[in-house]
Design a binder for these strands. Sequence first.
DNA 1: TTCATAGTTCGATGCTAATCGAAGCATTAA
DNA 2: TTAATGCTTCGATTAGCATCGAACTATGAA
Lengths: 226, 226
Amino acid sequence: MKEGPDIARVAALLGDPARANMLTALMSGRALTAAELAQEAGVTPQTASSHLAKLEAGQIVVPRKQGRHRYFTLSGPDIVEALEVLMGIANRVGHNRVRTGPKDPELRKARVCYDHLAGDMGVALFDGLAKRKLIESNINGVALTPAGIEFANTFGIDLDGLRAKRRPLCRECLDWSARQSHLAGSFGAALLERFYDLGWARRIPESRVVRFSDAGEKSFRDLINP
Amino acid sequence: MKEGPDIARVAALLGDPARANMLTALMSGRALTAAELAQEAGVTPQTASSHLAKLEAGQIVVPRKQGRHRYFTLSGPDIVEALEVLMGIANRVGHNRVRTGPKDPELRKARVCYDHLAGDMGVALFDGLAKRKLIESNINGVALTPAGIEFANTFGIDLDGLRAKRRPLCRECLDWSARQSHLAGSFGAALLERFYDLGWARRIPESRVVRFSDAGEKSFRDLINP
DNA sequence: TTCATAGTTCGATGCTAATCGAAGCATTAA
DNA sequence: TTAATGCTTCGATTAGCATCGAACTATGAA
């Protein structure tokens, strides 16, 4: 027995395929019922119940009872971060499960991934910001350039407020419909939030779809195509 | 089968206690041999070999052959990041492996880590030697300064004898009870050996505790506080 | 050469955990 | 009340894997 934080216990909870499927499904940010999670994981409700009990005991997810349903959410942003990092590693070492992404064209085009923009437009945003040299990606991760910091300020994003959080500002998150990176982290989340505020886009209730207005999509294109 | 990166595969690799111990040991940034990792994980060399083969196949660690040793290092900064995030989660949810019971304070104060001194006194030793400029630490690791070489000789340590061994003279080892580095390597081991010889301390059988006598502890304090 | 050390492979064992059928609660609807 | 739905508990099965002893390979030392 060694001292220190028991990472094996946490990692083992994320290391079962059924549980990992449930957790990635929860990365949409929506609360899902036990039955929905069973569906996502491809196991029977009994099995799912057993897994959820373990995840709850390990404080990876938190339940919220409502009627005769139990809704689950991830217990904190650190879980999201762990899942994102693990996705990055899995991608790097080539552990990808080949399958095409969401069939729904709207989902494929633009959806939320936890709290940031994913789908084709998410990937386009990432590439566009990189092309405009507002972000740069290297082996250590993604970061805002000086030009990017200036852009954020003029675009109405409070970087200091974001930095106060412990969450990393920028992070790559692998998009499983487009197979490319999109922008996560607190900056990625703030951008999407700003899109909402500007009226460029809105979220469709009970779904992960992000729907851009025509004008909003045009502004978005202008943003990423200098 | 779902789409997307297979995070379960990666997480499962980190989710075994023996492997997790190996990986946390590698977080010091130093390359470690298979035998050292077996020691860290508390398993036999055969078992360690099996784990290392899995970690290597999963591209979590990379081996480097040198003589008849195989040195392992983490395969990239993303692995370090993943381990750190998992540590943070484990810490948050209270999954800390802290030994309870009467021996705990003694272990925390001074214990052997492989064959050198760890715990609060191990960290104090490292810091004291650094403050006296007998060792210096940089990106490449730790090394004895000229003053440190002179010190070693007067303190009764046969440096030439140590150099004849293949083992590195100085090495940093991360202390998870104190969250700081202590001194490992053949010089670290020789120092502890010398403490035994001088009657400053003795090892408690069937335990990792190192118990200093009152006089021994005083001498130790004099050593690290110039 | 012979011996020692570092590491691996093989095989057997034993434990853990994932899985699901069946039955049991709990909540809501009628 | 009865029926239906959502979810959990129980029990049995199964499969995977961690573990280690023994034997083997490879490198270096005497």
